Amino acid sequence: MSTHTHHMLGPSSVGSVVLDIGGNTGALVIVTGPEWHGREIEISPMDQDPPVRTHVAVRERHVSSGVRYSAVFPALPAGPYVIWRTPTEAAGTVVVAGAAVTEIEWWQAP
């Protein structure tokens, strides 16, 4: 995945992420391992040329079941997206559903 390291953000606590979903807007959660902490993951709509990318940082998240590392895209138009490994190489795709949270696991080394 295309990654940038800006700064280390502190952990988030249970219920601290606000999602803006409904209708044709969904959220995407990419669950990673701790080695991704502080890195950014970029995605773009699949059918966009040139692709306009958005990115979020992987953060340590304290949830009711323990600690998870994840990138949360809180509001995305429903549809297919490309996940970028590098500025020019795609790592995979995901389809975001409207009015729902789409969650995938990503365990590739950064």
Rank of each mutant, 00 (worst) to 15 (best):
M8V: 06
A27I: 05
V58Y: 03
A57D: 06
T102Q: 11
V29W: 00
G33C: 04
E105K: 06
V14Y: 08
T88V: 15
R85A: 15
G15N: 07
A78F: 06
H37T: 07
V29G: 01
A71E: 04
P11K: 12
L9H: 12
D20G: 04
R53G: 12
D20L: 09
L76Y: 05
R68I: 15
I21Y: 07
V95C: 05
A90Y: 05
E60Q: 13
A97Y: 03
T54Y: 08
A97S: 12
A100P: 00
R59Y: 01
S44E: 10
R53A: 11
I83P: 01
R39H: 11
A57H: 12
S12C: 04
G15P: 05
M1G: 11
W107V: 02
V94P: 01
L9W: 06
T32I: 03
V31H: 07
G38T: 04
A100S: 14
P74H: 07
V31G: 02
E35M: 01
V17S: 11
E105Y: 00
G15K: 03
P110K: 05
G98F: 02
T102E: 08
D47R: 09
I104M: 14
V58E: 03
V95S: 14
R61V: 04
D49G: 05
V14W: 05
V29I: 15
H55L: 13
G10L: 11
S16W: 00
L76Q: 06
M8R: 09
T5R: 10
A91K: 02
T3Y: 11
P74D: 14
E35C: 02
A90I: 02
E35N: 12
T88G: 08
E103L: 10
A99Y: 04
A100L: 03
P45R: 15
T25Q: 14
D47V: 01
H6R: 09
E42C: 10
F73V: 11
I21F: 08
A91C: 02
V52L: 15
V56R: 13
P50M: 12
I41N: 00
A78M: 10
A100H: 13
D20K: 09
H6Q: 08
Y81A: 10
R61G: 01
L28D: 05
G66S: 06
R53H: 06
R53L: 05
P51D: 09
P87H: 10
V58L: 03
V96W: 02
A97W: 00
E103K: 11
P77A: 14
P110V: 13
V101D: 03
A97F: 01
A100M: 13
G98H: 03
M46V: 03
W106K: 02
A97R: 10
H7D: 09
P80W: 03
V82E: 11
V18R: 14
H37E: 13
P87C: 00
M46S: 09
W106C: 02
I43W: 06
V94I: 13
S13G: 13
D49S: 15
V18H: 08
T102R: 11
A97H: 07
